[in-house]
Each structure stands twice: as C-alpha cells, then as structure tokens.
Computed example of a mutant assay.
Amino acid sequence: MRLRTFLAAGLLALGATAALAGASSSQLEAYQPDPSLRTAPTSELETRVRRACAVVQARMQNTAETSFERPCGCYARTTLRALNASEIESYRTTGYFNDSARAKALGAIDSCKLQRPV
C-alpha cells in the first residue's frame, strides 16, 4: 500500500520523476509521460525531480514539503549529475528512471539522507 501511495504521489507530482526510484518498470507501464520532458532543459528536469521528491518525502514522513527543500535539492542534483546521456534520454522518453538510473537515484537518496520509498 505504501508503494502505491508513493507511486501515486510521484505521478501526481510532476509525472513519475526521480522520486519514483523505488518503483519497478512493470508498475509504471500504463503511465503516460509529460511530453514537455522531451525538450525540457536539464535545469527544468532538476526542478521537477526536486519538487516530486519533496511531495513524496512529505507524504512518507507526514510533514511539510518545505522541510525537504535542501535534501531534495541535493537528491535532484546528485541524481541528474550521475546519469549518463542514455539514462537521461530514457527518462525524457518514459517519464521515469530506467533500472540503471534507478540504482543511481537510490544511492542519491541515501547520500542526501532521505527516506527510501518502501
């Protein structure tokens, strides 16, 4: 149930961004990505990832989104800097991280001291 809540929060909060690091690809098959992802600059991708992170973390920890500005900023920067060109392209196409990007995103969750999704 927590995973479904996590998925719903991430999907509603800007479309299956990096905050969906814990979700499997099969759970996201029906998701339709935001078409603007394909042409969005990297700075916009980072903003989307940061905002989705804050929404998901706030719901998981039952606290205000604003309390996650710094750690989610860390998460978004760390994750996007770790991704290679093909992982970013996959994210732009699908709206969520592929398996190799997901592993990097989970590492960023840990290094930025955020709670991992269940």
Score class of each variant (00 low, 15 high):
A18N: 15
L20Q: 04
L20C: 10
A21D: 04
A21C: 11
G22W: 05
S25K: 15
S25Q: 15
S25N: 11
S26Q: 15
Q27H: 10
Q27K: 10
E29P: 05
A30C: 10
A30F: 07
A30S: 14
Y31R: 09
P33W: 00
P33K: 00
D34R: 12
S36K: 15
R38C: 04
R38L: 14
T39R: 14
A40E: 08
P41D: 04
P41F: 00
T42F: 13
T42N: 07
T42L: 14
E44V: 10
L45P: 02
L45Q: 01
L45G: 00
E46V: 14
R48N: 06
R48K: 12
V49M: 12
V49H: 05
V49R: 04
R50I: 07
R50F: 06
A52K: 03
A52H: 05
C53M: 01
A54K: 07
A54W: 06
A54T: 12
A54H: 09
A54E: 15
A54G: 09
V55M: 08
V56R: 12
Q57V: 00
Q57C: 05
Q57S: 06
Q57H: 05
Q57R: 03
Q57I: 00
Q57Y: 00
A58C: 03
A58V: 02
M60H: 10
M60C: 07
Q61M: 08
Q61G: 01
Q61E: 15
T63L: 07
A64Q: 13
A64L: 13
E65Q: 12
T66H: 07
S67G: 10
S67E: 09
S67M: 06
F68N: 02
P71D: 09
Y75F: 15
Y75P: 01
A76S: 13
A76Y: 02
R77L: 07
R77Q: 13
T78N: 11
T78I: 08
T78Q: 06
T78A: 07
T79S: 13
T79F: 11
L80C: 07
L80I: 11
A82L: 09
A82I: 04
L83P: 03
L83R: 00
L83V: 02
N84S: 11
N84R: 10
A85E: 14
A85C: 08
A85D: 10
S86T: 13
E87F: 00
E87G: 01
I88R: 10
I88F: 02
I88P: 05
E89M: 12
E89I: 13
E89L: 15
S90E: 12
S90D: 12
S90N: 11
Y91I: 02
Y91P: 03
R92D: 01
R92Q: 02
T93F: 14
T93E: 15
T94E: 10
T94I: 13
G95T: 00
Y96G: 02
Y96V: 01
Y96D: 05
Y96S: 03
F97E: 10
F97R: 05
N98H: 06
N98A: 10
